[in-house]
């Protein structure tokens, strides 16, 4: 479902003497439907970078990244927009939403943009928020005012609202209490069971061991300057 072939990436900082910083070199990785792969490596080794490259958030200089039938590296913007709506989900560490929009709407949005009936989308959003223990009195409020842990759970609910065939998870269990952490792991397991290909970054070793089928160490593809 997700295939990364010989990808390389560097940043050129034009405003700092055109310094060129290579961050990824010749990485390859493949994730099958129903499989969960953990990206591992020291902080700064490029785990998030690789994940952002797969999502199309960072440009990839060379190589090929296939998600389903689409090559992220050469795709037109509209193809990427479509892919992100229907195929590739992403739970980031940060919640970025329009202020003032209610939590329910935030969670239901991925369903709404794919043409779901509003009532159904709301039902699904409510079920997810309930499951992730977001107090009902907060549902009508904007999540921008929530605590870090609450924002993270809203983010997860949003990421799992639509059944994406491929999922990218950036630290989904960080800053969660044991109960919610267990719920999130359960949700990931369910996604796997329905056939989603998942790539995750977990600093939580126990979680990683429990949910991931294998590990992928990005350090091997980190250019020398880091060592």
């Amino acid at each position: 479902m997700i295939t990364v072939e010989n990808v390389s990436k560097s940043f050129t900082l034009h405003n700092q003497g055109a310094a060129e910083i290579p961050v990824m070199h010749d990485a390859s990785l493949s994730v099958a439907p129903g499989e969960c792969v953990a990206l591992v490596g020291a902080s700064g080794a490029g785990k998030s970078t690789l994940m952002r490259m797969i999502y199309g958030n960072y440009l990839t200089q060379s190589g090929k990244i296939m998600v389903g039938d689409l090559d992220i590296v050469s795709a037109a913007p509209r193809e990427l927009i479509h892919l992100r709506r229907t195929t590739l989900g992403y739970v980031s560490q940060f919640l970025r939403v329009v202020p003032r929009v209610s939590t329910l709407d935030v969670v239901a949005e991925p369903l709404m943009v794919t043409g779901s009936n509003r009532d159904l989308a709301m039902e699904r959003a409510k079920a997810l928020l309930l499951r992730l223990n977001i107090p009902q009195r907060l549902w009508r409020l904007s999540p921008t005012t929530f605590s870090g842990g609450e924002q993270q759970r809203v983010n997860i609910a949003r990421g799992f609202a639509y059944p994406y065939p491929a999922l990218l998870l950036d630290e989904p269990t960080a800053s969660l209490d044991p109960t919610n952490r267990a719920t999130v792991l359960e949700m990931i397991a369910e996604a796997k069971a329905r056939g989603a290909a998942i790539i995750g970054i977990f600093h939580d070793h126990a979680a990683r061991d429990k949910i991931c089928d294998r590990e992928f160490d990005v350090t091997a593809f980190t250019p020398d300057k880091l060592s």
Partner: peptide
């Protein structure tokens, strides 16, 4: 420069865009 909004803002390629974003 042009592209997906988050890509241009998070990984700007052109010197001017980098300056704008930073």
């Amino acid at each position: 420069e042009s592209g997906l909004t988050d890509q241009v803002l998070d990984d700007p390629q052109h010197a001017y865009t980098q300056l704008l974003v930073s």
